[in-house]
Simulated assay, not measured.
Amino acid sequence: MTEEAATVVRGGCHCGAVRFEALVRERRPEILDCNCSICSKTGFLHLFVPHEDFELVTGREDLVSYRFGSGQANHLFCGSCGIKSFYQPRSHPDAWSVNLRALDEGHGLDVEIKAFDGRDWEKAKAQLGNG
């Protein structure tokens, strides 16, 4: 994965079973800090990466799926250490949501963190990209 003016980031779970790399095309990607029930409890910070710019390097067989509420989001956890380093969100069906906190140190991204009111999901989703 290489591209001019883009950044390749790597990351994964705590035990190292799940490893990924992703191409981040934005110079200063917007990170969503969601306050929904699961994100607020886990401290997940959302970096959205289109499916075609994400590669799961190792750990496919280690991933465990969890769904709740509408069931549209597919939360993927490492079956060994329990860390959710990325998942399929319902808000961005064509992208993975990568946890900024699961990236390897020294990733080099300059990010902007923006609040996302996941407790009022429909309203917050409607406002994405409008600000």
Rank of each mutant, 00 (worst) to 15 (best):
L76Y: 13
I83C: 05
G79M: 07
H107R: 02
F116Q: 05
V57L: 08
V49H: 03
V49R: 07
P89K: 10
W121R: 03
G82T: 00
R90N: 09
K114A: 04
T58F: 05
G108Q: 04
A102E: 01
G69K: 12
K114H: 06
C78L: 07
A5L: 07
Q127H: 08
I31R: 03
G118M: 02
N74T: 14
A124H: 11
Q72R: 13
H75N: 11
K123D: 15
S65L: 14
H75V: 06
F20R: 07
T7C: 03
H14N: 15
H51Q: 09
E21Y: 08
A17E: 12
V98C: 00
V9D: 11
G43Q: 00
G106T: 05
E3H: 01
E21P: 02
H51M: 08
H107D: 06
V24W: 07
Y66H: 14
S97Q: 06
P93R: 10
R119Q: 13
G69L: 14
G11Y: 01
E21D: 07
L23Y: 08
G12F: 12
S70A: 12
G82L: 01
F20G: 05
L109H: 02
A22P: 07
Y66S: 12
R60Q: 15
F54W: 14
H92G: 04
F77I: 08
A17Q: 08
L100Q: 01
I113D: 06
G79Q: 02
E52I: 10
F68C: 09
F86G: 04
C39K: 01
T58C: 05
G71K: 14
S80D: 06
D62E: 11
T42N: 00
G82M: 00
G129R: 05
F77D: 10
R90E: 15
L128Q: 10
K123I: 12
Y66R: 12
N74L: 14
W96D: 01
G131R: 14
K114R: 10
G16R: 07
D33G: 01
T42E: 00
A22R: 10
S70L: 15
W96M: 09
E21W: 09
V111P: 06
H92E: 08
R90I: 11
L23V: 09
C78M: 06
P50A: 05
Q88H: 12
E4S: 09
V9N: 08
H46W: 04
C78T: 09
D94H: 11
